[in-house]
């Protein structure tokens, strides 16, 4: 039994931070270079924060932790996110 969801599970946490829907963005993993739609990442929500991992190599792509006063966003596992201009 898998203990993760697809990248759409991060949509709520990310919509608090970004004006665009990042689950539709193209994401490149800083670990293996895998380049896919962010929605194809594996998202772990049964945790103290939201953690998205590369479906190819399990590198942590993104972390979101919401505290009562702040939201922490760690994007260090992403080489880039590519979002089309509207």
């Amino acid at each position: 039994m898998s203990n993760y969801l697809d990248g759409n599970a991060a949509a709520g946490a990310l919509s608090e931070l970004f004006a665009v829907d990042l689950t539709a963005a193209i994401a490149q993993c800083n670990g293996c270079g895998n380049t896919t739609v962010f929605a194809e990442s594996r998202v772990y929500v049964d945790a103290p924060g939201t953690v998205a991992r590369c479906a190819g190599c399990d590198t942590v792509l993104l972390r979101v932790v919401t505290t009562p006063t702040n939201t922490y966003l760690d994007l260090r596992g992403l080489t880039y996110l590519r979002v089309p201009n509207s």
């Binding site: 203990n3 993760y4 594996r42 772990y44 049964d46 945790a47 953690v51 991992r53 399990d58």
Partner: peptide, 9 residues
């Protein structure tokens, strides 16, 4: 005994 995990087991 809840299971919390930030990655694959």
């Amino acid at each position: 005994f809840p299971v919390l995990s930030a990655g694959p087991t």
